[in-house]
Structures are given as structure tokens and as C-alpha cells.
Design a protein around this nucleic acid. Sequence first.
RNA 1: GGUCCGUUCGUCUAGGGGUUAGGACACAUCCCUUUCACGGAUGAAACACGGGUUCGAUUCCCGUACGGACUACCA
Length: 504
Amino acid sequence: MTKVRVRFAPSPTGALHIGGIRTALYNYLFAKKHGGTFILRIEDTDQGRFVPGAEEYIIEALNWVGLTPEEGPGFGGEFGPYRQSERKEIYHKYAHELVGLGNAYYAFDTPESLEALRSAEANFTYNHTVRDGLDNSLNKGMEYAEKRIAAGDAYVIRLKVTPGETVHIPDLVRGDVMVQSSELDDKVLLKADGMPTYHLANIVDDHLMEITHVIRGEEWLPSAAHHVLLYQRFGWTDTMPKFAHLPLILKPVGNGKLSKRDGAKFGMPVFPLDWKGQSEEEFFQGFREAGFIPDAVVNFLALLGWHPGDDQEIFTREELISAFSVEHIGKSGARFDFEKAKWFNHKYIQDLGDAELMNFVKPLVQAKGYKVSDEYLQKALAMMKERVTFLSDFVEEAYYLFEPVRKYDEESIAKKWNTNLGPFFAGLKDILVTFEPFSSLSLEDMTKKMMLESGFKPGEILPMLRIALVGTMKGPAVFDTAELLGREETISRVDSFLQHVQAN
RNA sequence: GGUCCGUUCGUCUAGGGGUUAGGACACAUCCCUUUCACGGAUGAAACACGGGUUCGAUUCCCGUACGGACUACCA
């Protein structure tokens, strides 16, 4: 059995969106599952759409989610170069070889003239029914073509599709997909600028790189017939890779596939990492910056269009690899459900060990300028971890664990505060100065005893103590918070609260 | 328009000729908790429609409807 080799082949035309990450993930899982090789190939044959920084973004994004290629630009490998722009001569050679075989031809029609034909006739396509009336070597002969090429005229090479064949696309997800060759147009293989189109480049590269399985988005299914035809014309059918066309990721609401604009529209990230384009319009938030754990994103994505066959939802990387199979990839488009993504992240944060969690949160804490010990931070995280959805919540929602209360929940104060409480809190404050041990349990004990003696109910005191310490009615147990904050800070916050409340 | 692909709770999906059609997210109620969460329990919620085939179809076949992708010298 030949070794499994799969490739992820993005085009560096901007940020790699989350659907691309899923495609990469499925390729990666498939490779790992079968002890194969996961390859990155950069499809930069469109010089007009090249975006600086896009390739770096792709690689950084793959690294972030832990889908590091074993071969690719900067990753080594025996089948390079892995950037298509660096393989120009190879495509040139194969395109001309196909012409020699009589399976492709030179065409001189300009983009403008074809555009004119298209606007004149709505359904115009460059195919077997019209090519005889156009400007190409099929129509006007090889001699004519060679003369024009020698004269330096621009030309493209087109695939010569012969009608009357049934093209079978063996698809691991959809079975045997059939297309009549008469429906197919004579696709451009080599462009006038000497670069190949996707169709030529991906066949030549997959063949040369000994790719065994092509796992890509469903948007490629319509052109897959051309690709099969190309394998046939080159005489490579024996080693033609198996195809698996993945279902699309759809918009959260409405119709159509998820697009980059949907992020801003629905207030959620659709990219792995922040992307900063030229204009403000071209800024897109990333899952990383939104406070996601990469493994949570991977887990979420894995289940978006694939199912393990049982009821398991949470998977380690290893479990994902061993459970993965193309047979369980779904056929229909999957709606992007951000609520589910949030749940995965929340779940992952809860299940993460404190030390590991600290690695994620520490940079956020430092970015805010908070200076706390690892010990303090670890305790704070342990207290908060089941209450947060995003990593950033640790420093946003729970800012009060790192700095004084910014804002009191006035509504709760209005409801619960009355001046009779003043002496109680003043008394509590005095006791706190020397109270030992300053621990959650004994603090609670002491306070309860005080309430008993003074006749106040817990419902009167505790909510106000909470507001005093953290400003809000949400959050960890109030005495745990006091213990973490420590004696000095606790007293200071009770003091500030008293001043605030008496000022009003 | 043409070609191709698809259609099970609101969403992600399991299942598959005879099932109380299963799980998860979200939602609701309750318990736990004098906060918020976590956790637990319960609930509401689906086989697009019409024809076949069959003793029996949500499952197989054919249509219809609806949705989607593609339709460039873009990938």
C-alpha cells in the first residue's frame, strides 16, 4: 500500500478563514490517522491577487491550531518547491506536452474579445461547440499558432474537451459523481502571463508530489470533472488521488456560505487570527484574539461536518486522530454555530489544568499591566474558570481580582443598603485588621457569628459585602474572594465601599 | 438560465425497512447555592412534500419543492 500523502493548498489572497482551517484539519487528521504526510502547498498562481503577509498568516494560523505541515515552504520536503509561483517551468512543460499529445491547444482570443462574446450571448462558454469559430490552433492550424507565438503574440493553452464521454469522479464523501463531457468547457490551463490556472497546477503538483487523497471544499466539485479529465489526458489515471469534497460552512443565519464579512455582521470571529488589511474595513478579528483556546477551536471545527459515530463531544487531539474517518464526513452544509464554539471554549477552560491555563492567561494579565504572583494568578484562575467563556474574561469580567472596584452595582445597593448596616460593616472592618487566620473558612465563620449576634440575616449582609469587594453581584464565593484579595485589600475595599455608600 | 451537490429537533448531528427516532449546543422549569456560575434532574423540540417498491418506509427508487456550490486567462 502506498503511503498516504495529503496536501492543504491555500491561496495567499488574504486571511485564511475558518473553513480553510477545517479543511486543513481534516487533511491533517486523515494523514495522522493513516501514518501519512501532511503537506502545505501555496497556490500563488494569480499574481493579481497576491496579498503580502498572507502566506505568513497561513503558517502562523496553522501553527496556532497545531496543524504544522511536515512538508511545505519553510518546512522542508523532497517534493519542492512548494510555492507554485516557483514551479512555473514545470507547468509550462506539462502544458506543452499536453498540446503535443493533441489534448490541448493554443488560443489567441483576448480576454476582451471573450468578454464581448459573453455580453453578446448570455450563456457563452468556450467549448467544443464554439471553438472552431474562434482564434486557436485547433481552428487555424499548428503552423499559424507557431508563427504567432514566434511573433510574440500572447496565447493561452486550453484543454481540448471531447464531447460524448461520461466522466466519473470517485468521491469518498458523495460516491460516484458523473458529468457528461459535453457539458464541460475548454478550460484555460496556462494563462497568457505564463502562469498555470488552478486546474493545471493542482493536477501537475498532486501528481508530482504523489498526493494520494485530495480533501478540499465542495466548491471544487463542479470543476473536479476537468481534473479527472486532465489525469486521463496525461495518462496518470493509475495514480489519480481519491477525492473527498467537504460540505460547506454556512452563515449562522440566512443563506449562503460563511464569508469574511459575516464576522463583523454577527459579532464573532470567522478567522483564526486577527487580520489587519489596508483599511479599517479590512480588519477581521481572530479566534485567538477573541480569547479562544486552539484545541477548543479544533474540537469545534472537527465536529462541524464530521461525526465520530458515537456520542462523544470532547476529544483530545489523539482521540480525534484515531476516531477520524472520511466515511463519517457529512454531505450537507453545516451552519456556523458560534454558541457551540463558545461552549467548547468554556468547557476547555474548565477542564484545563491551572498551570496550563496560566500559560494562556498570563500574557493577558501582563498586557493589562497587572503585577501579580504566579501563585495569586493561579488561585484567581481556579476561582473563575467555571464562570468564563473567553480567556479574556479573566481580565475583563474578573478585573476586580487584579485592581480595585471600578464601578458598584448601584441597583443592588439601592435595593439592599440601609444605614443600619453602617455600624456592622465598620465593626467588621475593625475585626479584619487583626483577625487570624485570614482564610475563607474562618472569615465566613466569624462573619456569621457577627450576624447572629447583631441580628442581621445573611441576605442583608452578604450581598453588600460582595458588592463592597467586587462591585457586582456575580463572581466567586465572597469569602474565597476575600482570602485571595488578602487582608489589606479587603479592608481597603470595605472602606471605599463605606465611603461610597455614605456619600450618597 | 445551465451543470453538479444536498434536505432528521432552532443549530451541529446519530440512526436506518418494523426504534418510545438517540446525543450535544441553545431554550424552559426545578434541585444545589443566601451571588453568578458549575453540577444534577426534567421538559419542549425533527425525519421537506408527492408518488412508487414493500406486509411495513423516516430509511430504497422516481419526481416536486426548497437550499447551496459552480458557471474567469480567481483559487
